[in-house]
Nucleic acid binder design. Structure first.
Length: 984
RNA sequence: GCGAGGGUAGCCAAGCGGUCAACGGCGGCGGACUCAAGAUCCGCUCGUGUAGACGUUCGUGGGUUCGAUUCCCUCCCCUCGCACCA
């Protein structure tokens, strides 16, 4: 019967569903044997793709592994619907937006009839939960306890979040404050990126306003480079623009009309006194608040009244734009006169450098402009030049002497400090704005507004300290991520945790606001432990005291709720989370928040034990994108290849934390491999039982099996799913390939070996390919692989000697092959000569003395007989020194007990088969003596060799009737574990 | 720029101080099987070589070492994150 994944997988799926196999409850097993793995709950604003499939399969494989190890394992799932993405998607659907419709129809195969169901947020979410995620997860065979599902919009979940936020507020970890948000002036409402029509990628900037003065009137000039304030030579205003004089927080300011609304939204008291045309200010002198210098306000068409305050300061020494504008102004005396400015006054303006930077001369802006050959401020190229100057000055610019406490410092290091310094003194103010226009989908202009909001105080020192401790205690996989957590904790400021609208839980004390998604998903793993038993608890009973009792015990409430106390047992049984399988890009927010909230709300013993961070998925080498339709749906992949193939490919092609690349060709080949495995397995299952009558080669395979069990187990413990599955599958296939070549498979001993090997491998593979492995294991033994324990190495079959010996056989095979290839011959006889005993003695000496040529020679030369051999010994020692260096101590020790000659003799028939030749094995000494006898008989005289020592004991009895022969005198080339070879 | 990861043969990718010309997969070449194709199996896939070798390779340039793909430094290039988007 050939491999048919669809049929066999369907059968196992229903078996699992019917038996509720993966529903986990506290049972007799010890707390230490409870394992709780979680994965970020999916956000069903769209469908599931193959990248998600891996995300959820990694914890599944670990869960299955731990179950086989005897643990009680809980792997739950829920659904995250908080916030605006789902609402946004529904809005776009209802408006009939083509992009959205096409994604739904073409990418996710939503039928026309179904579209109507998607027009409410929860209807939309439900569809993707049921038809995509849940379905996909079940098809993949994920061992999830489905009783515990919930969504974050559920009433009871909200009660849980309410408890969490009330508790945090009480502990002083929430704080109210102002926070900049994107704000649509049309709808008079904050907007998210999804609500934007134009400028989706634009980030707002915090501009510094330098408060230039003219008498009592302030001209606030917006800049991103406050440190250049000492280099200001003049100001620019748009003569055509509309400006106002207004009272701002009690001061008299001149700003553009457009700036009024922005300032108002940014928490300034503002009252417009009168509107003025920009040109009225042209030619005026304003005073630099830092230097006290008077500078001229010049007209400039490039000034945008809708950017910042509509008045800008000019720093020609360090800004190419300003430099060019100044040059142009100087060149157009006519225009200056029209505005009543004496051109001589402008001509007199010279750039004032305020910092020095390598690669440029005194006036960086001028150098940059000149070296790039730019001559007009309207030229599009200055952008790049400006960027270059700004970057270099920011990272390398050293502030000049006038800067007092900041003199000699690099801009990058002191900008913030300098800004704060002058702000405190009242010379600077601040304003948020976008560097480019941003338009909402409602068509309104989007500006930055400051809004009252609630923050999580992630920069609270005590809280940080606890969290850092949680980071230290964590098993961070891979280890390199630990530093990223530490870094994130150091860097996090306050986090605004509410939004104006969206799905989710209302802020308990102000129901105008909703707790945002990253903030309502920090400790929900605790909710899984009780989710399936809440049905009978009315939501209104789930108050502070209820959860206090549940999480902190009976003492935490005056009149502890019985139900909460019962649920507490569940929570205590499963918590803490053993592993959270998440993604690299969540380290800097969600995962760190997860640690923060656990560190604060729970005892140390309940803190997360481990986090593994996963990489991303690519499709045919490119990033997946559901909006472009560049995705593979698990559904379709499983239909085509089968769930085991999908799982195996996802887990086997890279370690979890590495990126993986879904390539159809490789997935197809994975399926072929599994299919081949299936066929081979069936052959073993269908063959007669065999019996335990083992030859060396069987023992070799069994020894390799034990090695494999050991390394697969180690890899699984480190979450190295690729290493584990590679070893169990591909790695072992290589051994089997050798075994098939080497052994007579018809023997009962071989059949016994193959069955034993198959059984063990199926158990090792069961976490990865549960359908196939369970099925085959059941056919082989009557029990499924998941019903029997994870394999352990069997001491009886561990045998490093056999492994080392087999290696010698492989070496000889390779060496003979090489010689045959190079000489292009087809030998009829292959002769192997095993090194003489005295050579083994030299090897012993090298091992004893250490791999040092000089020392070894010193030792060896003590021996008269060896000394007589002269150069031969010297070069032998050289080779043996290398040999010893290249092998570890264990191997050398094992080799010491190996009888090399019998290894080859035992393998002789195998060699004969491989080379299709007669194979003869001799001892070097015996062969040599035979040669000497021949030659002495011929010449009737002793040559020099006759004087050589005969270290008696190594003389082997010749195996061939003809006696040992050494036609070409090759025997003397033999070295220990490297027999001399002669082909004829 | 800051933080993290990475650059290995035609491609993907393992190795992370010696058994490394470098696992494995894909692709390619040759052979077996077959009427044929596919699947499967076997061998080859840096160069040279009539004896198991030698030569040149693991982003660049240096260094440490008896020995470096593996350790240290320089530089170049790529990917990800850098916040109120989930």
């Amino acid at each position: 019967m050939s491999y048919d994944p669809q049929e066999l997988e369907a059968e196992w799926r229903s078996r699992w569903a019917e038996s509720g196999r993966y529903e986990a409850d506290p049972d007799g097993r010890d707390l230490d044997d409870s394992t709780f793995v979680t994965v970020p709950y999916p956000y069903p604003s769209g469908g599931m793709h193959i990248g998600h499939a891996r995300t959820y399969t990694v914890p599944d494989v670990y869960a299955r592994y731990r179950r086989q190890q005897g643990d009680n394992v809980l792997f739950p799932i829920g659904w995250h619907v908080t916030g605006t993405p789902i609402i946004g998607a529904v809005e776009r659907l209802k408006k009939g937006e083509e992009d959205q419709l096409s994604v739904l129809r073409d990418t996710y195969n939503v039928s026309e009839d179904t579209l109507a169901d998607l027009e409410t947020p929860m209807g939309y979410a439900r569809h993707f939960i049921e038809e995509h995620y849940k379905r996909g997860m079940q098809q993949l065979g994920l061992s999830i306890d489905w009783r515990r599902e919930f969504t974050t919009n559920d009433e009871r979940y909200s009660k849980f979040i309410t408890w969490q936020y009330e508790t945090l507020k009480e502990r002083g970890l929430l704080e109210k404050g102002l926070h900049p948000v994107k704000y649509c002036t049309e709808q008079e409402n904050p907007v998210t990126t999804h609500d934007l029509l134009e400028g989706e990628d634009v980030e707002y900037q915090e501009y510094t306003l330098v408060k230039f003065e003219s008498g009592e009137t302030v001209f606030p000039m917006a800049t991103l480079r406050p440190e250049t304030v000492r280099g200001v030579t003049n100001a620019y205003i748009d003569p055509e623009g509309e400006y106002v004089e207004a009272t701002v927080d009690g001061e008299r300011w001149v700003v553009s009309l457009e700036a009024v609304e922005k300032l108002e939204l940014q928490d300034h008291e503002i009252a417009v006194e009168r509107e003025v045309a920009g040109e009225e200010y042209v030619g005026e002198s304003v005073t630099n608040p830092i230097t006290g210098d008077e500078v001229l306000v010049l007209p400039a068409s490039f000034v945008d009244p809708d950017s910042g305050t509509g008045v800008v300061m000019s720093v020609p020494a360090h800004s190419p734009d300003d430099y060019l504008a100044l040059e142009e102004a100087k060149a157009d005396a006519q225009r200056l006169r029209e505005y009543g400015i004496d051109p001589a006054n402008v001509e007199a303006i010279e750039p004032v450098p305020i910092l020095s930077v390598d690669d440029y001369g005194e006036i960086p802006a001028r150098d940059a402009v000149e070296s790039h050959g730019i001559d007009s401020a309207d030229d599009p190229d200055p952008k790049a030049v400006t960027q270059e100057v700004y970057n270099r000055e920011f990272h390398q610019g050293v502030l000049s002497e006038e800067y007092g406490e900041f003199a000699g410092e690099v801009v990058e290091d002191v900008r913030e400090e300098l800004k704060a310094h002058f702000q405190t003194q009242g010379e600077f103010a601040a304003m948020y704005d976008f560097p480019e226009p941003v338009i909402s989908r409602a068509g309104g202009k989007v500006v930055v507004a400051e809004q009252e909001t609630w923050f999580l105080r992630y920069n609270d020192e005590e809280w940080q300290a606890k969290t850092l401790e949680a980071v230290e205690n964590l098993e961070a996989i891979p280890e390199t991520t630990r530093e990223q957590y530490t870094h994130t904790v150091d860097w996090l400021e306050e986090w605004p945790c509410i939004r104006n609208y969206g799905l989710g839980t209302r802020l308990p004390w102000d129901d105008e606001f909703v707790i945002e998604p990253l903030s309502d998903s920090t400790i929900y793993m605790a909710y899984y432990t009780i989710a399936h038993r809440l049905e009978d608890v009315p939501p209104e009973a789930m108050d502070r005291a209820f959860f206090d009792t549940l999480f902190y015990g009976p003492e935490a409430a005056d009149d502890p709720d019985e139900r909460a106390l019962e649920l507490r047992e569940e929570w205590e049984y499963w918590y803490p989370v053993d592993f959270r399988c998440s993604a690299n890009d969540l380290i800097s927010n969600h995962l760190t928040f997860f640690l923060y909230h656990h560190a604060e709300l729970f005892e140390k013993s309940e803190w997360p034990q481990g986090i593994t961070s996963m990489g991303m998925g690519l499709l045919e080498g490119e990033k997946m994108s559901s909006s472009k339709g560049h995705v593979v749906l698990p559904d379709e992949a499983i239909d085509e290849y089968g769930a085991d193939t999908v799982r195996f490919f996802l887990l086997n092609s890279s370690e979890p934390w590495q990126d993986f690349d879904w390539r159809a060709e490789e997935v197809g080949s994975t399926r072929d491999q599994l299919s081949r495995f299936w066929n081979r397995a069936l052959e073993v299952i269908d063959a007669p039982d065999g019996e335990r009558d083992l030859e060396t080669i069987d023992r070799w395979l069994l020894a390799k099996l034990q090695e494999t069990v050991r390394s697969v187990t180690d890899a699984m413990d480190r979450f190295e799913t690729r290493t584990a599955s590679q070893q169990a599958f591909y790695g072992f296939e290589e051994y089997l390939k050798w075994y098939r070549r080497r052994a007579d498979l018809e023997r009962p001993g071989a059949r016994w070996t193959l069955r034993t090997v198959l059984e063990t491998r199926l158990r090792l593979l069961a976490p990865f390919v549960p359908f196939l492995a369970n099925e085959l294991h059941e056919r082989l033994t009557g029990e499924s692989a998941e019903d029997v324990p994870w394999p352990e190495p069997v001491p009886e079959f561990e045998d490093s000697t056999i492994v080392v010996q087999e290696r010698l056989v492989e070496d000889v095979l390779e060496d003979v092959r090489d010689i045959v290839d190079v000489t292009d011959t087809d030998p009829e006889t292959v002769r192997l000569y095993v090194a003489a005993d005295w050579k083994r003695d030299v090897l012993e000496t090298v091992i004893d003395v250490g791999p040092n040529q000089g020392q070894v020679m010193g030792e060896v030369m003590q021996n008269d007989q060896l000394r007589e051999k002269g150069d031969a010994v010297n070069s032998l020692v050289g080779d043996l020194v290398s040999f010893v260096r290249e092998h570890d101590d264990d191997t050398l020790e094992t080799l010491a007990s190996v009888d090399e000659q019998s290894v080859y003799e035992e393998a002789a028939s195998f060699f004969a088969r491989e080379f299709d030749a007669d194979v003869e094995v001799y001892g070097e000494s015996a062969a040599r003596r035979a040669a000497e006898e021949t030659s002495s008989a011929e010449r009737s005289s002793a040559d020099s060799r006759a004087a050589e020592p005969r270290d008696g004991g190594d003389d082997e009895e010749p195996r061939e009737d003809a006696g040992p022969v050494d036609p070409d005198g090759k025997a003397s080339q033999a070295e220990p574990f490297r027999p001399a070879i002669h082909l004829e």
